[in-house]
Design a protein around this nucleic acid. Structure first.
Lengths: 109, 109
DNA sequence: TACGGGTGCAACTAGCGAGTTGCACTCAAG
DNA sequence: CTTGAGTGCAACTCGCTAGTTGCACCCGTA
């Protein structure tokens, strides 16, 4: 059931993105597909910690597991990021639109 | 010196957005400028908790304090959201671009 | 088949963050 | 001047999360 929810709530995505280690992981996965062990060889944290981070990222659809032989590599998915970006842009535009309307109203003689 | 940094790191912004209560606050502020006490009258948390949240949001430039008489109202700023949205979109596009390049390479006979 | 790199599950610790209560101060309005 | 609504600071609790270590299992390869 956790297949590919379009964008249930966006809070979990931000929660997933609110961690430096996860951003390091995402940066590496954006460069090349890597397994948890491969990432652990690069980043200064244990393999299990990385595995947990990957689970979090996969949960919100930011990465996707890919079986290669007997290892599980992960791929960074830009779609979810773009989706989140559009949501943010919409909300921010609403705020600014309201502000502009108030300003216009105040300048009306 | 914490005036208006363009976009130091984006992790703190996501950290600020990774909380439901803060989103409720932002939603209210997007509707109208309110003080901490005003928000506390609406949301089911104490005024001090809201004050902390407002401090966090102001720290990353998502809200802005506005003195009105003896109270301090807060205004939601869409600019930071739009800025963050653009950063996300750029990163996501990079990932997808790399994937597309690999796919194209694999289909080359 | 025997080996070993890779993965997954579980228990545990430490620290950060959200929330609360209590108190003191300030300043606009009566 | 007096009042009280609004704000700010501080100490405290509690739950979540990042990180660790240890162990068991699986499966591709030599």
């Amino acid at each position: 059931m956790t297949g590919t929810p379009p964008a249930a709530t966006l809070t979990p995505v931000f929660s997933a993105l609110a961690d430096d280690t996860r951003w390091q992981i995402l940066a590496e996965l954006g460069r090349a597909e890597l397994s948890a062990s491969g990432l652990a060889a690069i980043l200064p944290v244990s393999r299990q910690a990385i595995a947990k981070h990957l689970a979090v990222l996969a949960e919100v659809g930011l990465v996707e597991p890919v079986r290669v032989g007997r290892e599980v590599r992960y791929r960074a998915l830009g779609a979810r990021l773009a989706e989140t970006a559009r949501a943010l842009e919409t909300i921010g535009a609403q705020w600014d639109r309201r502000l502009a309307a108030i300003k216009r109203l105040a300048e009306t003689p």
